[in-house]
């Protein structure tokens, strides 16, 4: 054998990049943990039972007493409504891409449109929703927020579902076709069951985006200290609560922003865990 130098250049290069990668990973994961830590550290002292069970008291918008129940309830209504509305459109579109327009030019056009929609900033959806409401003669309201969020969620949900459905083995569809099922029957009875975990993941992902988005509901949902009593009344939301409260010069109100941020983070955390747990439960029937 030819003797080699003990540490060759390529060995050094390997070590150098490995070091760089480990530093990056530690840095990235560290900064992400730092965020969680900051929110918990700042939010926890300000959080008490009253915060999550009462509406604000003592002063319009930025009362220093009471809680943020208006924002919690408002956010849940907004995100839930937007998600349901978006689902009604997303699932058919995703199924259409695989059952009626499979591998056609048109399917590519729809996917391109969804990609573009994915990239549109949420503030633009907000502006669009606002104009839509002007034309319809609506005021800032729960319904306005729901419609705007549905637009925002559509590309997220539809592409997620599209990807989930793409994983279905062709043989499974053929098994259904071979029994004389139509495309619709195969889509609705077989493929939706088979992909239930993936579909659910897409739905919860979109829900998470919706509940955390402030820019799109800024124009369209308004803000109020009260709980919404109809689809047409304005409604508060957690992200805006954080934003408004943090923007005040009063430290006591700023504290409440930290608590609101913590509540929002916890909701997202619960969603993430729920999503994992549910999709594991839904795999009962899934054929591999």
């Amino acid at each position: 054998m030819v003797p080699r130098p003990r540490i060759s250049r390529r060995k050094l290069e390997e070590l150098f990049f490995q070091g760089l990668m480990i530093i990056s990973t530690v840095g990235v994961l560290g900064s992400l943990l730092l965020i969680l830590g900051t929110i918990v550290w700042r939010g926890l002292p300000a959080l008490d039972l009253a915060m999550i069970t009462q509406t604000p008291k003592g002063g319009y918008y930025l009362g220093q007493e009471g809680g943020i129940l208006n924002a919690i309830v408002g956010s849940l209504y907004l995100a839930l409504g937007g998600t349901l509305l978006s689902m009604v459109a997303s699932l058919p579109i995703a199924l259409y891409l695989h059952f009626y327009a499979a591998r056609s030019r048109w399917a590519e056009v729809v996917r391109l449109a969804l990609d573009v929609l994915w990239g549109i900033p949420s503030i633009v959806y907000g502006a669009f929703g606002f104009l839509l409401m002007l034309w319809l003669g609506m005021r800032a309201s729960l319904l306005g927020g729901i419609i705007t969020l549905a637009f925002l969620e559509l590309p997220i949900m539809a592409r997620g579902m599209d990807e989930a459905i793409a994983m279905v083995p062709a043989a499974l569809k053929e098994a259904s076709y071979a029994l004389g099922a139509t495309r619709f029957e195969t889509a609705a009875r077989i493929v939706v069951r088979q992909t239930a975990p993936g579909l659910l993941t897409a739905v919860l992902l979109a829900f998470g985006r919706a509940i955390g988005d402030a820019a799109s509901v800024l124009f369209t949902a308004g803000y109020t200290d009260r709980l919404p009593d109809s689809l047409l009344s304005p409604v508060a939301s957690l992200p805006l609560a954080v934003f408004f409260q943090l923007g005040t010069p009063f430290p006591k109100v700023q504290e409440r922003a930290y608590a609101s941020a913590l509540v929002l983070t916890v909701i997202v955390l619960v969603l993430s865990v729920l999503s994992r747990w549910l999709s594991r439960r839904l795999t009962r029937h899934v054929i591999r």
């Binding site: 990973t25 994961l29 992400l32 943990l33 730092l34 965020i35 969680l36 900051t38 929110i39 700042r42 992902l205 998470g208 985006r209 509940i211 955390g212 988005d213 402030a214 957690l238 992200p239 954080v242 934003f243 943090l246 922003a257 930290y258 941020a261 929002l264 983070t265 997202v268 955390l269 969603l271 993430s272 994992r276």
Partner: peptide
């Protein structure tokens, strides 16, 4: 790492904003 990364992908931007300010 991966569940943590997934989780953080879902955290609302306003929370990142709070972290930014603080």
């Amino acid at each position: 790492a991966n569940p943590l990364i997934d989780l953080l992908a879902g955290i609302p931007s306003v929370v990142y904003g709070v972290w930014g300010v603080v």
